[in-house]
């Protein structure tokens, strides 16, 4: 499953980042590494971007970018 498909409140574990280059690197440097557990907090009022909690802080990213994060849903 992709992170972009999750609803607010969902908790998931990152399986892989399916992207390349500096974008992938930055995602990883912000903490989006395989094995990391994240929580989807909110969707913006207009439907995009989304807010997630990762490594104890809040990160916002667009759905098109969240699509690059492959996750496995825990809850």
């Amino acid at each position: 499953m992709r992170l972009s498909e999750l609803k607010p409140g969902a908790i998931a574990r990152i399986v892989a980042i399916s992207s390349t280059g500096s974008f992938k690197k930055r995602l990883q440097e912000m903490g989006a590494l395989p094995g990391e557990i994240i929580r989807v907090e909110k969707t913006a009022p207009l439907g995009d971007p989304i807010e997630i909690t990762i490594k104890g802080y809040s990160l916002s990213l667009r759905k098109s970018e969240a699509e690059a994060i492959v996750v496995e849903v825990l809850k």
Binding site: F23, E51, S58, S60, L61, E65
Partner: peptide, 8 residues
């Protein structure tokens, strides 16, 4: 450009 932004 990507929009990977911290919400401080």
């Amino acid at each position: 450009s990507p929009f990977i932004m911290e919400l401080p």
